[in-house]
Design a binder for these strands. Structure first.
Length: 737
DNA sequence: CAACAACAATTTTTT
DNA sequence: ATTGTTGTTG
């Protein structure tokens, strides 16, 4: 940011951007196309409020989806208004929700020592809920049920709401799991990610005092990535903003790619409906990409039926055509990309750091890692196994959580026998039974067992009692240490007394894993100034809420490497790269198999938007590649180019002739890319009634060609038998009328 | 109780 | 191919 921009905030903005910055009175909806300076508008709007209109930064709330976005926004605002930026309330929806719960949670019976459960913890809780309901965990898989429950929470449906609207058997079962799941969370003094949104809304709905307090706290509310908000987030926003406050949301319906996470694209329309005086400002000038890229991407997304047209104009020149490359298989696809990057680096003034490889699924990174390792191209993978998901981190965090909150059974179960200390499943079963019967947390049961026996019966066989006693003894000592100890000293004591450090040292990846723990310790160090109890609460909240903290830490330490970025299309949203390769642009990959399987056109449209998001990341050059066959899970399958390629105007694309790539030596001539492979007629269609020798009668849900294209996989919902997947050639399905 | 083997499952994942 | 979960054996 230049000093000139800091001097006059409205300078260097185009007409529509300036309009958006100056619209500070009523509700404002900014529809921001890709590369249209969205972040610039938000940051300048904040600066305009503070510097030009004299608004106290404390009275501004800015909400984002990611910590990364929040960080970036804060630093950019800082360059415009200086230290005053520190006084802004700026963060993710979930962090904001957590903050409300920490402040006012007791009003809705959220205990002040609550811990935040992430997806992994949630799955564990749901698993227990399903077992507790006596359901078969194979038929009712925890992630699926959890997804339904999460969806309910995102739509602000409480257990009783969900129970009363449950229409079929499955939903009634989900309802019972939801109920049990909530009980387990409550007993653990835990809230899940969705609760961080839902509970504050319930609080603000029911408690006018708290509502007034919050509404009076902020005069200006801004929300980024509005197209990805769910119902709970919508309501949280409108409750906090109140009717009379200045509320500004920014989004782009064409970049909505999180419907599968219960984002509700309707929120854009709903906003204009709920706030009729809304001023809608489109930002349609793209400063990022060449006109070729903008036009090609626009042509693609235009193929979506459920869409409102927005004018997009490119400010840059036309540049090069979009290059489409067919490769024999994923290995050649990767080699092609590697070779092309080397060529760009050698012949054009490209740096490795300018290039990004974007793919639909993480598994696709493999071939590129191999190719880059072989050619010596530096690369970095975004995502993959994230810091907080590493086992050693989760383990240490679990110890800390239990020490802070002894009700946290899930964390206790995680670490009670890590390292192994002779507390096995049998013992734990007995302890859990007793805990359940007496309605106390598991840790309490262990304490009782360590003492000797329960009220009437011995809790554990004498032999099993000893390790439990040792464990409780150890935890008691640590709790002693927690009092008044320095955060870091305590951290170190946890590692040594629990034997976890030794346990890691014995591991084959000891060095890496110890490094990771050391990084966690560095995070804890940031809280040294606080009193230890406080410090741990704040520390554990940060741990739960910053899933990308490792990225922050790493970037801080080492200057950004000149390396090619490997990233999923989803994660690439909001980024930009001079050179972008979208790889694996194939049917059943992009669009993904699962979106085709469902037969839901909305899912296909989301895949198309995902492709659109990917294309619009490219600034100067865009490549889209696909393979004719691909090794997936050990077997090769024939692949077809993505139907999306057909949506691109011929005059904007250039197909490379693959045999010119040279590096591969002699090989078979490659078939021309076929964009219109005729489909073999499907033997069944969704809706057909069929009969099966074993499963009886059913209705066809879907009928898809197998990857080898020699048969069809038919998904059939059988009466009373559930949904089965069968091969048409083998199952002997009979079509009924 | 713990180590090992057989077994399924495997899109994306801002928090 | 890989990984985590479940069941069997020592």
């Amino acid at each position: 940011m230049t000093t000139a921009a800091a001097r006059d905030i409205l300078e260097n903005l185009n007409k529509e951007q300036r309009e958006a910055v100056e619209a500070v009175d009523g509700p404002v909806l900014i529809i921001a196309g890709p590369g249209s300076g969205k972040t610039r508008v938000i940051t300048h709007r904040i600066a305009y409020l503070v510097r030009t209109l004299g608004v106290n930064p404390r009275r501004i709330l800015a909400v984002t989806f990611t910590n990364r976005a929040a960080r970036e926004m804060r630093s950019r605002v800082e360059s415009l208004i200086g230290d005053r930026a520190n006084r802004l309330t700026m963060g993710t929806f979930h962090a904001f929700g957590a903050r409300i719960l920490r402040e006012f949670g007791e009003d809705i019976h959220v205990p002040s020592d609550f811990v935040i459960y992430d997806q992994d913890d949630q799955t564990s809780v749901m698993k227990r809920a399903i077992e507790a309901e006596g359901l078969d965990p194979h038929t009712y898989r925890a992630p699926a049920v959890l997804n339904a429950v999460s969806g309910a929470k995102n739509m602000m449906l409480t257990v009783s709401d969900y129970q009363s609207q449950a229409g079929n058997r499955y939903e009634r079962i989900v309802a019972s799991c939801y109920d049990r799941y909530e009980q387990l969370l409550k007993a653990a003094h835990a809230v899940d990610f969705d609760d961080l949104l839902m509970k504050p809304v319930l609080l603000l709905r029911s408690n006018p005092e708290v509502r007034d307090k919050l509404q009076n706290r902020y005069d200006h509310v801004m929300v980024d990535e509005w197209q990805d908000t769910n119902r709970a987030q919508y309501e949280l926003t409108s409750l906090v903003a109140g009717k009379h406050h200045s509320l500004c949301v920014v989004g782009d319906p064409d970049q909505s790619i999180y419907a599968w996470r219960h984002a509700d694209i309707e929120n854009i329309l709903r906003f204009e409906r709920d706030f009729p005086e809304t001023q809608t400002i489109p930002l349609g000038r793209n400063y990022r990409s060449t006109s070729t890229i903008v036009d090609a991407a626009h042509a693609l997304v235009k193929a979506n039926k459920d869409r409102k047209e927005i004018e997009l104009t490119a400010e840059k020149g036309s540049g090069r055509p979009v290059t489409i490359e067919s490769a024999d298989d994923e290995e050649y696809e990767a080699l092609y990309v590697a070779e092309e990057i080397e060529r760009l680096v050698a012949e054009e003034k490209t740096r490795y750091g300018d290039c990004a490889i974007m793919y639909r699924t993480n598994a696709q990174s493999r071939a590129f890692e191999d190719a880059f390792n072989r050619t010596g191209i530096r690369y970095r993978i975004v995502g993959g196994l994230r810091f907080w998901e590493r086992r050693e981190i989760r383990d240490v965090v679990a110890y800390l959580r239990v020490l802070r909150n002894p009700f946290d059974d899930i964390s206790l179960l995680r670490i009670v026998n890590v390292p192994t200390r002779g507390i096995g499943r049998r013992s734990l079963d007995l302890l859990q039974q007793w805990a359940e019967a007496n309605n106390v947390p598991l840790y309490a049961a262990m304490q009782v067992a360590a003492e000797g026996e329960g009220p009437n019966v011995p809790l554990l066989p004498a032999q099993s009692q000893h390790p439990v006693r040792a464990f409780v003894q150890m935890m008691t000592e640590l709790l002693e240490a927690l009092r008044g100890e320095d955060v870091l000293e305590f951290f170190d004591q946890v590692l040594s007394k629990t034997g976890y450090r030794e346990f890691l040292e014995a591991d084959e990846n000891a060095e890496d894993r110890l490094d990771n723990v050391e990084e966690l310790r560095n995070v804890a160090a940031q809280y040294q100034a606080l009193e230890s109890g406080e410090a741990f609460a704040a520390f554990l909240d940060q741990v739960a809420l910053s899933t990308d903290l490792d990225a922050a830490l790493r970037e801080e330490g080492s200057e950004r490497l000149d390396a090619v970025t490997l990233i999923t299309l989803h994660q690439a949203k909001g980024l930009e790269f001079p050179i972008a390769f979208i790889v694996g642009v194939e049917e059943e990959l992009l669009p993904h198999f699962r979106s085709l399987e469902s037969g839901d056109p909305a899912e296909l449209e989301e895949e198309r938007r995902l492709c659109y998001v990917g294309m619009t990341r490219a600034m100067d050059r865009l490549y889209m590649t696909h393979a004719m066959r691909r090794n997936t899970r050990g077997v090769y399958s024939q692949r077809k180019p993505s139907q999306f390629l057909r949506d691109l105007p011929q005059e904007l694309i250039k197909r490379r002739v693959p045999s010119l790539s040279g590096f591969s030596g002699p090989r078979e001539p490659m078939p021309e890319p076929q964009l219109d492979v005729p489909k073999a007629p499907a033997p069944f269609r969704p809706g057909d009634h069929v009969g099966h020798a074993r499963f009886g009668q059913g209705v066809v849900v879907a009928c898809l060609e197998t990857p080898t294209r020699d048969d069809f996989e038919v998904t059939v919902a059988f009466k009373g038998q559930g949904v089965k997947r069968l091969l048409a050639g083998l199952a002997g399905l009979e079509k009924l009328n």
